[in-house]
Design a protein around this nucleic acid. Structure first.
Lengths: 341, 341
DNA sequence: GGCCCGTAGGGAACCGGTTCCATGCAAAAG
DNA sequence: CTTTTGCATGGAACCGGTTCCCTACGGGCC
């Protein structure tokens, strides 16, 4: 069934060593000989076994990727960026979908990732612990994390505190005072995850504006329905209604906008909404947002990781990716409210 | 650096053969011996090399998956189903993102998939050609396709013609006569892809209702903005406006609904909208749809494929998955239109 | 003319497991 | 008491490539 390189060698009348050199293009092989080997390989439909090659070279040309969600736009887009970059360099991408709080977490890190199957690992929005990272590094498997920076692990990140401050300041600059933050689920008081940092940025901006007492924050599932539910709840009471909402991601922002429209609140006339991400749908919804480039982040992660795979460890530990304010029509200057006149 | 099974064997005072049996659990090993080996392995942090094992067993415990989009809900959800099912059985999932019309297609099928790296291949929405499939089957790599059935390849599908007929008939049953179809891009007259089949189903239902002359179909990018653009275009002229739209997928349906609202057309009062898929967001948008279960499809594909991997080829070539009408508030009985009075 | 060097190619070890086969031993069967 | 059987283990081949080391040959240089 499967033809081996020995068969190719026999057919071309050369040794295994020469056949290997001819097919891989390494070492001295006469042009005529190389051609004979290539022809022979084609004739019998030879396909090399990457496993056999990995065994001796120690390189697998395979990268393990861990991600919390696949069917979320942001993570899917990162994944597309990673896959494209890897494919272009002849690498495979093996994917593990590690839902937050999954009991499989140990199994993935201990069993699946810590085998000699991967040249490197990319962890997205997973925030590996020191032990998890250490286990891999001890095996000589470099790792890079996309998301909130983790001490001791090479990370690719946007400055989430700054992004959140930027978003809040944009609303403040438009004259809003009653600004509500609708973010993701926060665990504990000093949450260092992406959600925690965005809450921190909101607080910093509000306090700096002398509005520390006016802060209001709610938590939502990070999706359009999640934002819709949270928005419906937050906007239902006219007396408590904010004039602006800073949502921790664009899906939530879109959900809030739809909720507002259902309730009869006009965006941006009665309510300004800003998000973070630069979602594919932001343009269509005229959503003002702090735009980041997930595809680019995926590509950069690959570049960095493969450098670490084949060379010395890079100097920089935290690489910061760009995030910029894109103003569209979901934010507008605050109006003097009727009930405040 | 990496410790081998020989080191474990030496430390436990047994042979490589016994160490292998102890760790894999196959063959006779005394309980005490097994414990010694397991302890030794733990002490030196032994991690097995799956490549070495694959080389001799011929099994890689790795499945290749080809998919046209990752950051689209439907495909992402299938992927989550596949990944979950594979992980549970100790399999890896290696992913290739093959955008439609990509020049990489040959490279993926010839180079990446047709190596001895995979025990099987799942192709999603890719419709492999006979050659592409044949190459893999000749190598002894079973393949299953999710999407429109392809002759000679084991396929998992919903009956897209029937689903589209069901959707159209639902609108007809509500008294609508002026029903427009907004579908995906169709290539050629006899398009056998999912998009083509859904158009066919629409036509069948319309013709059967004696409305063959009233058919109107437009093409859209399969996304919310795509549906928004197509919807805006289709609904802008009041004299040509349909009373109902059958969208080929829920994203497009949602886009149409948003377009309608912007124009000032009330759903479902002035316009009924139905989609296909059962998107996560359908509930929130009160969207009537033909619901299918992508996660379940992914899981089923894995079950079927692994059966083929480890046993005789299954008898059935085309497996049909359920798709059912879920009525929500985006569809309503047709009204006598003002201009028709 | 002898020596060195660059190019060609072969033999064999090797990567790290799995598995076949042979051997030893104790308990059960005859 | 001998023979069979079942369990336990070791030795060695093997999977399919890559690579190290060695040999060989022809041309340029001293």
């Amino acid at each position: 069934m499967g033809s081996a390189i020995a068969d190719v060698a026999a057919r071309a009348g050369v040794s295994k060593a020469t056949a290997s050199r001819a097919l891989s293009g390494k070492g001295y092989v006469a042009t005529a000989t190389r051609q004979r080997v290539v022809d022979a390989a084609k004739e019998i439909g030879f396909v090399a076994s990457p496993n056999a090659a990995s065994l001796v070279t120690g390189r697998t040309k395979n990268i393990g990727v861990v991600i919390p969600f696949i069917s979320h736009w942001f993570f899917g887009a990162i994944l597309e960026g990673i896959e494209e970059a890897l494919l272009g360099r002849g690498y495979d991408m093996t994917l593990y979908n590690l839902r937050p709080g999954s009991v499989d977490r140990d199994r993935v890190f201990d069993f699946f990732l810590a085998r000699k199957r991967f040249d490197g690992v990319i962890a997205i929005g997973v925030e590996p612990t020191a032990e998890e990272a250490g286990r891999l590094l001890r095996l000589g498997i470099p790792m890079i994390s996309i998301g909130a920076p983790v001490a001791g692990i090479r990370s690719l990140t946007i400055d989430d505190v700054r992004a959140a401050r930027l978003a809040t300041e944009h609303l403040l600059g438009l004259g809003h005072r009653n600004i509500m933050h609708i973010g993701g689920v926060i665990t504990g008081d000093d949450d260092q995850t992406v959600n925690g940092q965005r809450l921190t940025g909101y607080r910093q901006a509000m306090v700096a504006a002398g509005l520390g007492g006016e802060m209001r924050a709610a938590q939502a599932v990070m999706s359009v329905p999640g934002g819709y539910d949270a928005g419906t709840h937050a906007l239902s009471d006219p007396t408590l209604r904010p004039t602006a909402v800073f949502a921790a991601c664009d899906e939530v922002a879109i959900g809030v906008m739809i909720a507002a429209r259902r309730i009869g609140i006009r965006v941006p006339d009665d309510l300004s909404v800003i998000g973070i991400d630069g979602h594919d749908y932001a343009e269509m919804f005229s959503l003002t947002t702090i735009e980041q480039k997930p595809r680019l982040q995926g590509q950069s992660a690959v570049t960095d990781l493969l450098e670490a795979v084949s060379g010395e460890p890079a100097a920089v530990e935290v690489v910061e990716m760009p995030a910029r304010l894109v103003v569209r029509a979901s934010t507008a200057p605050a109006r003097i409210r009727a009930d405040a006149v």
